[in-house]
Design a protein around this nucleic acid. Structure first.
Lengths: 245, 245
DNA sequence: GAGTGGTCTAGACCACATG
DNA sequence: ATGTGGTCTAGACCACTCA
């Protein structure tokens, strides 16, 4: 037989269409974090292509960080990992370069009607009912960040009845376990501005001091906004480096 | 014949060794930016592997940003591209999100013996002779960044005799054309601190105002430090966003 | 038309993980 | 032993660029 049965109407490459098909079943939630993808040979069979072509589609998912290969075991949908996001902007390592983990202190949680700008970010109707969480993150008792977090009340209702003692250092596992909402990606935006009295106080600054502001919009698999937060940090703790090319 | 003549002593994969060979000839300067790589078929022949294996090695170079494929023409060593580095930290887009290009104004250039910390960064002997360049970068006449740049006097001598009118907006092309020094990568580090009188004045601030500080260490192909610079910018212009996972 | 990269096939054998 | 991913072969044809 001849080598080429790829009788394609001028569409995109076959590996690319397979990549898209797999990706959309991850994004739609059909394949959840930790789930295993079909094996490469079975992907090849279902899409009627050679194994190498199926493999190339999986390669793309790996390159883009959607899945992770484990030799001999399979290929698995990755969980989002934020351990190197925010933290990287601050001096969170000790003198030997070891990563330090900040502790979270819950300052308060309440319901409120959505302010206009936050409603817009969360794609909620104006005055929709939101949950506001305020907390401080510390390393060695030194206040590193002051955070205000907004969530849809309807989707995160269980948080309102969680006793203060049971709030851990990380919120996203709580979202997942209590509310079934999984954060998949986020956009952080950095800028600077004056700190209002409350946050300034918690950071040990006088009101109006310049602070770094980090806003985050976190989204689920389906690209639906889940969380909006504003974190403020002391300028003298701020530090970040990265490589170019 | 049998499919497998890859009688490998348990070393790394063949595509990986080819990748390393190509990379080292880029890093050593044997292949310079703009040069074309050997074609994939000729790479396969010289290394005595199947075309697919050679291609995979080139894939790795492409993925890591060392080279660029041009369909039908060849594969070429990339030039470093800094257009999305520093600039991205500042509000350099207009309301429609179009990228704006800052103009550079040369404030001064002089020789001086290397201060200890800068000598260390540049891996030059203490008190080695350096060139110091001071400039301001503006968008629409608004001062965006104040920069102080340090270079080895010996390697960048031609800059000292360049008339002020001939300094363009970009330094790296000058380095390459006049001095034969090519910047290949850099590390930027962000932090904040008070501005000395000179920089503060140029940014329209009072001395001691908090500013964003961006230090950059730029290196050549051989990883030898070429340039160290300190850029200062107004906090109220500072803005950066990025995606996580 | 010759040469380049881009896609794809249909196999092979190896290394690793698990029951 | 079976199934998974990892490497590799030896071709094919297509799409693009350039002389």
């Amino acid at each position: 037989m001849q080598a080429n049965t790829h009788r394609d109407d001028s569409r995109s490459p076959r590996y690319y269409r397979i990549y898209q098909a797999l990706l959309s079943s991850i994004q739609s939630g059909g394949l959840k974090p930790g789930d295993s993808l079909p094996s490469e040979t079975s992907i090849a069979q279902t899409h009627d292509v050679a194994p190498g072509t199926a493999r190339k589609a999986v390669d793309m998912l790996v390159d883009r960080g959607w899945v992770e290969r484990q030799h001999g075991r399979g290929t698995f949908v990755r969980r989002a990992d934020f351990s190197h996001s925010l933290a990287r902007f601050f001096r969170l390592t000790d003198r030997e370069g070891v990563q330090l983990h900040p502790k979270s202190e819950l300052l308060g949680i309440r319901e409120l009607p959505a302010p206009a700008d936050i409603a817009r970010h969360l794609e909620e109707p104006e005055h929709a009912s939101l949950i506001e969480i305020e907390r401080v993150r510390r390393v060695d008792e030194l206040p590193l960040l002051h955070e205000v977090i907004y969530l849809s009340r309807d989707r995160f209702l269980p948080l309102l009845s969680l006793p203060a003692e049971e709030w851990g250092d990380l919120l996203y596992p709580l979202y997942e376990q209590l509310c079934g909402e999984v954060v998949f990606r986020a956009t952080d935006t950095l800028s600077a501005g004056p700190a209002p009295a409350g946050p300034a106080h918690h950071l040990g600054l006088s009101p109006g001091s310049q602070v770094i502001e980090i806003t985050r919009l976190a989204k689920g698999y389906d690209e639906r906004p889940l969380e909006w937060r504003l974190s403020r940090g002391r300028l003298d703790w701020f530090h970040y480096s990265f490589d170019i090319r």
